[in-house]
Amino acid sequence: MTDFRTFVLKLAAAFGLPWLFLIVWPAISYQSLGPVAYDKEKGDELDSAYAYPLAAPANKQGAKIYAAEGCVQCHSQMIRPPQIALDGWRKGWGQNQEGRPAEPARASTLRDYFGEQHAYLGITRSGPDLSNVGYRFASRTDVHMHLYAPQARNSWSNAPAYKHLYTVRKIQGLGSAAALPLKGTKFEPKRGYEVVPSVEAETLLDYLMSLKRDYPKPLTQAVAAAPAKK
């Protein structure tokens, strides 16, 4: 009996150690992690009126739809540093959409995901990374086209068509300004009908367009982070 008790205690110690130090303690200290002020004197691009992370957190309602549709199964949201992987150098994965990036897109950091309940870093990469997807599309219509008719743009694409986020309806008068330009594609609705995005589709788009995680990283982050923790 005492044998058994010692055994269970040993088990608890074996697992309790990683549980406490790898999971619980970091989770608690993450709660008090604050933004970091930039410091121009130390070589940052911005002065101390700005703090890192610079952007507002990603749209929360849209993130729920992103999760419900399981986008994370095929799209990552994590840029690895150029020493490890090609990520930063890929065309269009940073802010620059034209030609070869002059310098690689910045690797992701912990504070890039501030304000997000859960970061969808990714499971597999069957499609492009979405860390900076907010820069990628010229217009909202282009994104809608990708969601409703992925094969209209790239015939080889294996992205699913999210038809359930769109409404097919009879054209009234001149038709809706939001209707997708599907003419000539295999996704074209019946004559006299048009396809318009639902509220969910627009919300998902708000989320995608809010993903711009490339603002400058303060050089002194490690030092400045300490006081913010208290």
């Binding site: 999971i23 993450y30 912990l110 995901y113 309940q117 859960h118 969808y120």
Partner: peptide
């Protein structure tokens, strides 16, 4: 942890753990 705290990227790490 994942349901009650806002964990950002740490949450992804915890779910993988």
């Amino acid at each position: 942890l994942l349901n009650s705290l806002e964990l950002g990227a740490l949450g992804a790490g915890i779910s993988s753990w």
